[in-house]
């Protein structure tokens, strides 16, 4: 707790207060929103999911106790509603990630950056998916194609890269809200509208800004938590 508050700068105290006042539900909601809006799979929030699971389990037991002990049904139903909301967030978060894995499984498996973003269970899931899809495609289609065209990953053996592997489209446009001031960013020399300073190629957001952005240049800002997707 902030017993040594005299040693901290105003900004640190502000950050700390935001940290302790942001509930796990808030954090989970933000993770869920980010995951839904982002074209690629984001790092797995292991600690957050673990904490959320524990809290949910605790609450499930409490609600069961209420039901058995004949506690005031109004209060029991309110706790149940809160429980339902938290469960929905957790489940939807995990489901959105699974959807993305199913869509891009070969790409995720190939690229270490993405593979490191999965949880252990998700890695197992990806492995099984790849095995099953590979087997299915081979049995139904690939074994019947001419010899040079039988790979799951390449169109034909003369392809230089794995061109049958879909990749996430990082140039999609997303809507983002600024939580903390971002660094000034170059936008790859693409044209800029009159809404911001065109003297230099910088684009910068301050807390409270709402913008439509191309995803790729803002990946790091999203990972560091400076912006969140809406």
């Amino acid at each position: 707790m902030a017993s040594g508050a005299g040693d901290w700068s105003a900004e640190q105290i502000d950050d700390y207060e935001t940290l302790i006042s942001t509930t796990d539900v808030e954090l989970l909601k933000r993770a869920w929103r980010n995951e839904k809006a982002s074209p690629e799979i984001l790092p797995f929030e292991e600690a957050l999911v673990k904490r959320a699971k524990e809290q949910i389990q605790l609450m499930e037991e409490t609600v069961d106790d209420f039901a058995e002990s004949g506690h005031d049904p109004l209060i029991a139903s309110l706790y149940q509603m809160d429980l339902d909301r938290a469960q929905f967030l957790l489940r939807s978060y995990l489901r959105v990630r699974l959807q993305k894995i199913e869509k891009f499984m070969f790409h995720i498996w190939k690229m270490d950056t993405y593979r490191n973003r999965l949880s252990i269970e998700e890695e197992k899931f990806t492995e099984r998916c790849i095995r099953d899809i590979g087997k299915h495609l081979e049995e139904t289609v690939l074994s019947k194609l001419p010899d040079n065209y039988r790979s799951v990953l390449k169109q034909s053996i003369i392809s230089e890269e794995d061109d049958m592997v879909p990749e996430p489209q990082l140039d999609t446009f997303i809507v983002a809200k600024c939580e903390r001031a971002t660094r000034p960013l170059y936008l790859d020399g693409s044209r800029q509208s009159a809404s911001f300073d065109s003297r230099n190629d910088h684009f910068q957001m301050v807390p409270g800004d709402l913008c439509i952005l191309r995803y790729r240049p803002f990946q790091e800002e999203l990972m560091s938590g400076n912006i969140s997707l809406v």
Binding site: V175, S190, F203, L210, V230
Partner: peptide, 28 residues
Amino acid sequence: SGTSAVKIPNLSAMEVNIIRPFVGRALQ
């Protein structure tokens, strides 16, 4: 017209959600 980022101050959640598909694909 061909920008990489547009500021849309004071838009609300529902409005953002409605325009998102069209504007996203147009800008893309």
